[in-house]
Design a protein around this nucleic acid. Structure first.
Lengths: 194, 194
DNA sequence: ACCTGAACACCGTTCAAGT
DNA sequence: ACCTGAACACCGTTCAAGT
């Protein structure tokens, strides 16, 4: 929302959340590769060093962004494993809502610096559906890896296509279908475990 | 193999493969973060700019590494979907054989710059096991996303643990079990599709 | 509480020129 | 065929000092 600064304005002070918002703006407008501390500082009319008052380093900023991307309104929908499926689709939507969203979340998760909400959420939904806790944790891991991998792939392809010479690949239509297939495959596997 | 240069030697000339070997040495000794063009050049006793005679840019070097990591001796083992399982385990071993191997392969694959062999291989094995080609391609995608995600996670945790304060996480023993569980879950799902 | 200014130690890449 | 030298346009991070 607060992307560009008015030139030659009063020296505005910023909060941690201001910084995160500006970072999300850059992410969505230009992608992860262009989200540098220096560029972020520039968009806030501030010196790069100022950012280190708000965040210990770039990784912890990215971890914060990952948490924001992943935080879900948690709307209660269908019961049973249909709820698991719904949560997976909702997570995909959250990831697609930000450019490079999946990569930001995947790397934060890999480094163990945040973005744990979806895993907890999915595991809980699976337990709710009658899965024992250990199996639920493992299935949730499989789902998460698939979701992050598939959506990263999707997002990278979208970017490559936006500057490449008209890649004749499938549209987002068939990507949703492929995604649903993957989720159903994994949940189908779960069903045979009973 | 050819990691360090003797100081003050004759100006050795290098081939494209020499560069790749030196890069894999750095990868295994110090990890992806330390694999910079400047550092690679230094290890070859060469100016950074010399590398751009061998590779168009860093990404294409990484793509070459990904192909090398992933190229598998293709030993024919068990038949049916057991062969699929065996291929998945073999791929995991290849990825684990290089530090950050999964990340290198995943990013190359995401960018569409190489490392396509495992996908082709897995799809073929699935077709061989009686799966129709389109389903085989999709299942192979699910398997690949899981494998790359899980192994990245594994490798990142190993590195974090090597410098962190003795993370009381599970050993590689249970990581193999978790991996096998994931593969079986997905292949179990495939079985229900018949 | 939040930021500046200046510095440190790096990056990837290009390009004319050399052998 | 393979490399040098020099430059360009960047990075993340630290830290004393300012308000």
């Amino acid at each position: 929302m607060t992307s560009s600064r008015n030139p030659r304005s009063a020296p505005t002070r910023h909060s941690r959340e201001d910084v995160a918002d500006a970072a999300l703006d850059i992410l969505n407008s230009f992608g992860l590769a262009d989200l540098t501390m220096r560029r972020l500082a520039q968009s806030l009319d501030v010196q790069p060093s100022a950012l280190y008052w708000h965040y210990e380093n770039k990784q912890s900023l990215l971890a914060h962004l990952a948490d924001l991307i992943v935080e879900v309104p948690s709307s209660e929908t269908s019961p049973g494993t249909d709820r698991v499926r719904a949560r997976c689709l909702a997570l995909r939507e959250r990831l697609l809502a930000y450019r490079d969203g999946a990569e930001v979340v995947a790397s934060t998760l890999a480094l163990g610096l945040g973005a744990e909400a979806p895993g907890i959420d999915l595991t809980a939904a699976l337990v709710d559906a009658g899965t024992d806790p250990e199996t639920a944790a493992r299935v949730s891991g499989v789902l998460l890896h698939f979701i992050l991998g598939q959506v990263s792939h999707e997002q990278q392809r979208a970017q490559a296509g936006s500057l490449g010479a008209a890649a004749p690949t499938d549209t987002s239509e068939s990507e949703s279908a492929e995604f649903g297939f993957g989720i159903d495959l994994i949940l189908g596997g779960l069903a045979t475990l009973r």
